[in-house]
């Protein structure tokens, strides 16, 4: 059975399907709370991040997706550091460590499946931190990519940082990307919105940036722009179906106008590693649709399944790597995160 976890500004829902055509809706979880990320620890424990305008962010654990316990010792900078504003992502390594990316930009690590968390000091206390500046979307570490002792952290509006020594040190890796801050500090000031790597070759990473879509073939040492066929370079999510190699982005008109070009809501797909793009298949709405997809609101199952959640609260899915799309049942609050759990 496929279970899709959908986190929104006001609660989360689970959608279950045995055939990826008919879906049963279950929920809400955390009614009234923002749900900003889902994850899975190595022992099978489910993780969820909540946020509240009243009561702040927190981490919750569950053995079954229904009984949830908030952890008491969640990620925290401490009383003299930055403030924890929001939890953006959970990433679990092959050896069972859970990495949590947060705003204000930071990464925390759990070695006990999400019960307790320690700061990743080499990133959180990076020598360039004093020059980090938030963009319109704040300053958040929203993606962690792992490959053995190598690690990449993508942080808006700072850039991509790589560690070659299991997180002991980090170096900005943004050469070739257009900077978001004119005359900014060397190496930083790049507003990466999302990244996704090739699991068969971690040197290949695709990047949806504030300033366009990029690819690196050398682990981030250099980036090249890859936008041929796209109606706009701006957008937030980027995802890859590992079975087919298809890449997906959701272009938006511009920084100052974050809606689909001409109200044409669709994912765009590349079947050649990002060299060219076109609208992904069929099934998209015919009527003007001026909603967007946030960076966390896309998920892939690695076998042709791709799932999108929109700011208008609609869910879209394909089971054939983007050839055909269907809208899933329900309309939800603004969707912040979509995950297969």
């Amino acid at each position: 059975m496929t279970t899709l976890a959908v986190g929104t500004d006001k609660g989360a829902w689970l959608l279950h399907s045995d055939d990826q055509r008919s879906w049963a809706v279950d929920g809400p979880l955390f009614p009234g709370w923002g749900v900003t990320a889902f994850g899975r620890a190595a022992d099978g424990t489910y993780l969820a991040a909540t946020g509240s305008g009243w009561f702040g962010p927190g981490v919750h654990r569950s053995p079954d997706l229904h009984a949830w316990d908030q952890v008491a010792a969640g990620p925290a900078f401490g009383d003299s550091g930055p403030r924890l504003e929001q939890i953006w992502t959970f990433t679990t390594s092959l050896d069972g460590r859970v990495f949590c990316g947060v705003a204000e930009a930071g990464v925390f690590v759990s070695d006990d499946h999400g019960v307790t968390w320690e700061p990743l000091r080499a990133f959180n206390g990076h020598p360039t931190r004093a020059a980090w500046q938030p963009g319109a979307g704040g300053m958040c570490a929203h993606r962690v990519l792992l490959d053995g002792d190598r690690m990449w952290v993508a942080a808006s509006a700072i850039g991509v940082f790589r560690s070659d020594d299991a997180g002991a040190t980090f170096v900005p890796r943004n050469d070739g990307v257009e900077g978001a801050v004119p005359d900014g500090e060397p190496g930083i000031g790049y507003c990466v919105h999302a990244v996704v790597a090739d699991p068969a070759n971690a040197d290949v990473i695709w990047r949806q940036d504030h300033k366009g879509v990029y690819r690196t073939d050398d682990g981030g040492d250099s980036w090249e722009r890859i936008e041929r066929g796209l109606p706009a370079g701006f957008g937030f999510p980027i995802a890859r179906d590992d079975a087919s190699g298809a890449l997906f982005v959701v272009p938006l008109a511009a920084d100052e106008n974050r809606v689909p070009v001409d109200g044409r809501f669709a994912a765009w797909r590349s079947l050649d590693g990002g060299d060219s793009w076109s609208v992904a298949g069929k099934g998209w709405p015919d009527e003007p649709t001026y909603t967007s997809v946030l960076r966390g609101a896309i998920a892939t199952d690695g076998d042709g399944g791709v799932y999108l959640g929109s700011t208008g609260g609609e869910l879209w899915a394909t089971a054939d790597a983007g050839d055909t799309w269907q809208r899933l049942p329900g309309r939800y609050p603004r969707i912040a995160t979509v995950a297969l759990v």
Partner: peptide, 17 residues
């Protein structure tokens, strides 16, 4: 109590995406 402010989410997403 939760204040009458803060429920829109703007307090949670202190910086919007």
């Amino acid at each position: 109590l939760p204040a009458v402010s803060g429920g829109s989410g703007d307090g949670r997403f202190e910086h919007r995406r």
